[in-house]
Design a protein around this nucleic acid. Structure first.
Lengths: 167, 167
DNA sequence: TATTGTTATACTCTATAACTATA
DNA sequence: TATAGTTATAGAGTATAACAATA
């Protein structure tokens, strides 16, 4: 008996129907898909928000790291932001060319260049951050202030393990 | 009077100190950074979870779309998943080569190829989804079931605007 | 004119390997 | 041996432009 030939598309065989029910149930519970879509949507908006000041999100993250923690090395910042050392070189060159930070050789360890923001760098970090904050106010407009804080807390819990694994 | 030369690094000029306070305050409220870090962390785990079955997250999303909504076109799926038509071609070719779905020309509109899962495709979708679900159980282990549901709800609210803008 | 499926291609982002200098 | 900073490069992922077929 060939069951499949006697069943139209709308009525799959029982085994497949049970699998489909399971699939729908699993799909509806997945968080990762929403995480991805929300992150891409946010990133696109952040890129647009920073375009007028000729910066990208990663550029802003590097600059704010230097401003918030003056004296860190580029390797330090790479570990904080989870980016590769090779990929921060161009970002730092661009920020340095704009006079937003300066490098000073560490007198105790000649391998290290410690990074310090200039006053212009501090001002730029503040401006860029406010542009991103305005963008966030837009994409989070459907969330109350309490919900935004809760979202931030839950997201921090998600990637907290990443730090636990490495550092 | 040149104030800057008389102030060491640890004591920036008052204007800069006020800016720094503002920067820290803004940074602590940003959601996008956590969104990005959480999403990247999740995606890396999802890629690893699907590696044994030779699939990637986007591959699984396409397959589950076909399984959940049989008879949709590739352009439909591109709109659902927010990917470009040009980039789904290779994904579909790979899934088709593995016998996980079939194409049928639409009799009423010759431009359309409607996509239908095979029983093997349904089984694969279920298996892949469960692999991802196990991965999610790991990265969400610090969240209660209620918190996971709340996170999913809040994330869906974030990118809900994307749909509202286009469709 | 608009849409589908497709090809070719460019651009961005990220990852790896290798090198020099220093510890 | 290990780390910092750098260069070069390879690989994904994603974007645009163009095309033929069809509506």
């Amino acid at each position: 008996m060939d069951e499949t030939t006697s069943r139209p598309d709308a009525m799959p065989e029982p085994e497949t129907a049970a699998a489909l029910k399971d699939i729908r149930q699993t799909l509806s519970q997945l968080v990762g898909y929403h995480l991805r879509r929300a992150s891409v949507y946010d990133m696109n908006g952040a890129v647009a928000a920073l375009e007028p000041v000729d910066a990208r999100p990663i550029t802003m993250s590097v600059l704010t790291s230097i401003v918030e923690q003056p004296g860190r090395t580029s390797a330090d910042i790479c570990r904080m932001l989870a980016i590769k050392r090779a990929n921060i070189v161009g970002l730092l060159q661009a920020l340095e060319a704009r006079g937003l930070f300066t490098r000073r050789d560490d007198p105790a360890d000649q391998r290290l260049q410690r990074l310090y923001p200039t006053p212009e760098g501090v001002a730029a970090a503040r401006q860029w951050l406010h542009l991103v904050q305005e963008h966030e106010n837009r994409i989070l407009s459907r969330l109350s202030l309490a919900e935004r804080a809760e979202l931030r807390r839950l997201l921090a819990l998600v990637w907290a393990d990443e730090r636990a694994e490495e550092g």
